[in-house]
């Protein structure tokens, strides 16, 4: 079972992931169509990139009164059935991360479905800040990141 892991230290705020998500999911380049969102705060010198974490105890899945959300057996992602979604917005209100978005034209929600196992945001992330990794490998990955940071701090003269 794989998830998208975000390495914020590497994110440069290029918004390629948003573009890729919008293009593959909706066929255009509109930030509002993207399921991954890059928020840039120049004043604070901070970038926050968020996408759906496919929670185990998913609040959106629990609350949906239309039966429009289900857990995909293949990718473990919580996916939307656009034919059933009525756009009641209860899941937007339930998601503690603000990771569910609303398509104004179709009047249904959109959320990350991991592109059926081939997430385009990860594929097109220029600085390599997004990783699509096995859940079990996440701690390993995080350790590698910390290690490499430490190595940079402890500059050893040859």
């Amino acid at each position: 079972m794989k998830i998208i892991s975000i390495e914020l230290d590497r994110c440069i705020g290029c918004r390629n992931c948003e573009q890729a998500c919008s293009l593959y999911g909706r066929g255009g380049f509109h930030r509002e169509d993207s399921s991954i969102r890059v928020n840039i705060y120049p004043g604070e010198r901070f970038i926050s990139t968020l996408t759906c974490t496919q929670c185990d105890a998913a609040a959106c899945l629990d609350i949906c009164p239309a039966g429009a959300l289900r857990r995909s057996a293949e990718t473990n992602a919580v996916v939307v059935d656009e034919n059933r979604c009525v756009g009641c917005k209860m899941c937007l209100m339930a998601c503690p991360f603000g990771n569910i978005h609303f398509l104004a034209d179709k009047h249904v929600i959109r959320k990350c479905d991991l592109c059926d196992g081939d997430p385009k945001c990860v594929k097109f992330c220029m600085p390599g800040a997004l990783h699509y990794v096995e859940v079990e490998d996440v701690p390993q990955l995080r350790r590698l990141i910390v290690d490499s940071k430490l190595m940079r701090c402890l500059v050893i003269e040859p």
Partner: peptide
């Protein structure tokens, strides 16, 4: 609890 057990965020 709303935070997933294996959440995928850095920072």
């Amino acid at each position: 609890r709303a935070v997933p057990s294996r959440f995928a965020l850095g920072g």
